[in-house]
């Protein structure tokens, strides 16, 4: 059995003149935790809408399980949460989950287990409309897990939650990821993605900007923050170094980005040889957030 769960081929969606998703090609494999990153309006939700059968693609195609199953059959083996939890407000938590089991044609047995997992077992007989947003979101996670899905798709799962709710959902996602479930997590919150994902896809204005392992995106050569009494001499010297990619002056610090390995030891030695002594000397590795911002803003 192949490991490929989902393939997107040149998938595009336009709303009028606006290209929401532009020729997006992707492959999702079993066992990974994918992060779909991008600022608001970059086409994340549209992409998910298309693979989830609720938005018709303008062009391009996608296939689940390498075309072995039709989309709606495949979705029975997938769990997905999009933006807000949508349930029948007049039904209780467990009635809603039973309906989902009927649709997904899976057994009712795991309802109890999943409700316990998300901490809603005590409230199983409460109507959905009485739930708080955090509880609704947790019920949505239980609903997405009720068929023990091959792939769990989460679109902005912590949107609109209070800090405690966010914490609960994150803990839940981490524990699900540890169980080995393949996850596709769409978010604009980078630390969220950094913490759980091992693979990231960055979208910007509907175009795929970057795709690769999460440690690769943050694996750059880092940058130095330098400060010296005479800034001009420092700047002129740094310019001559072959390892330097670019320099930026940022709040009195000179930020020096590298394109090759340059250790603190080597640089300080070189500076000393040139008779330059720094008042501030730090080497930093960028967070995913810095990387993301440089990626999407450039």
């Amino acid at each position: 059995m192949s490991n490929i769960l989902l393939q997107l081929d040149q998938l595009s969606k336009s709303f009028g003149n606006l290209k929401a998703v532009d020729q997006l090609s992707l492959t999702l494999e079993k066992g990974n935790v994918y992060g779909l990153l991008g600022p608001n309006g970059s086409g994340k939700s549209t992409t998910l809408g298309m693979i989830l059968n609720v938005i018709n693609p303008t062009s391009g195609s996608f296939s689940w399980y390498q075309g072995a199953l039709t989309t709606h059959q495949a979705l029975k083996k997938i769990g997905a949460i999009i933006e807000r939890p949508n349930f029948y407000p007049y039904m209780t938590a467990s009635q809603n989950l039973k309906l989902i089991c009927k649709i997904k044609q899976c057994s009712h047995e795991s309802i109890e287990e999943k409700l316990i997992l998300v901490g809603l077992w005590e409230r199983r007989h409460s109507k959905f409309k009485t739930f708080s947003l955090g509880m609704k979101q947790r019920l949505a996670i239980a609903a997405a897990l009720v068929n023990n899905p091959d792939l769990l798709i989460l679109d902005e799962p912590t949107n609109g939650l209070d800090p405690e709710g966010i914490h609960q959902i994150r803990k839940l996602i981490t524990s699900i990821a540890e169980l080995g479930t393949t996850i596709l997590l769409a978010s604009h919150l980078l630390d969220e993605v950094e913490k759980v994902c091992n693979h990231v896809i960055v979208l910007k204005e509907g175009v795929k900007f970057y795709e690769g392992p999460v440690d690769e995106i943050s694996q750059s050569f880092g940058f130095f923050e330098l400060k010296a009494t005479d800034r001009k001499i420092l700047t002129d010297f740094i310019k001559t170094l072959p390892e330097v990619k670019e320099m930026k002056l940022e709040s009195n610090h000179l930020k020096v980005f590298l394109k090759a390995e340059l250790s603190e030891e080597v640089l300080s030695k070189k500076l000393a040889e040139a008779n330059i002594y720094c008042t501030h000397f730090v080497k930093k590795h960028p967070s995913l957030e810095d990387q993301f911002l440089t990626l999407t803003q450039s």
């Binding site: 059968n53 989309t71 609903a143």
Partner: peptide, 21 residues
Amino acid sequence: GNEYSYKTLKQNLIDGLSKEE
């Protein structure tokens, strides 16, 4: 009307009901 206002039509489709079904 309820399926639209509760957005459960969307959820039904995501859960694996086809539009025809």
